[in-house]
Amino acid sequence: MSNTMAGPTHWDGFEHPAGRVAVGVAGGAGGWRGSLLHIHIAEAASFEMEELAEARCVAGRGIEGDRYFLGTGTYSPKPDVREVTLIEQEALDALARNDPPLQGGPIQLTPELHRRNLTVRGVPLNHLVGRRFQVGEVILRGGRLNFPCKYLEELLGLPVYLPLYNRSGLNCSIERGGIIRPGDAVLPLDA
């Protein structure tokens, strides 16, 4: 693909307009404990995602080997929060049972297809904009809600746009880097 821009401009999660506002607003969910199920990266836009048994997260850059770390993703020239993207396994489960029934039938959006880096279970992602949380030894900052794009729908040939609305996951920056592995605990901080 030749649709790559010069290089990634990452915003810290709390610098993004959404994250900045959310930081100053009370709320969010505490007392939960989730886990990391899968790690996926793609080396460039449109490339098939690859599952990793272990990944290095680098603060200010992203996951080693991923398109946004390498600057080979597809995105607009505006700075954004995209060092790490997460999605809830529960959202994928809902799609698989066609709930709510927004499309013709169940959609099996497997973790290697959805193009988010981390698939997590038991983590209330929509509550984490403007919040810090931990994935294993790594600390992430919730910057903005992810939203589905038509590009994904086209790439997969699956009508995922509407059913992913409002549960498309969370875009984060990395506050403290480190190594993560599937099975790592995901925990709220400062909650």
Binding site: S46, F47, E48, Y151, L156
Partner: peptide, 9 residues
Amino acid sequence: MTARIIQKL
């Protein structure tokens, strides 16, 4: 416009 997945074969 159509985007397509690229695989390493």
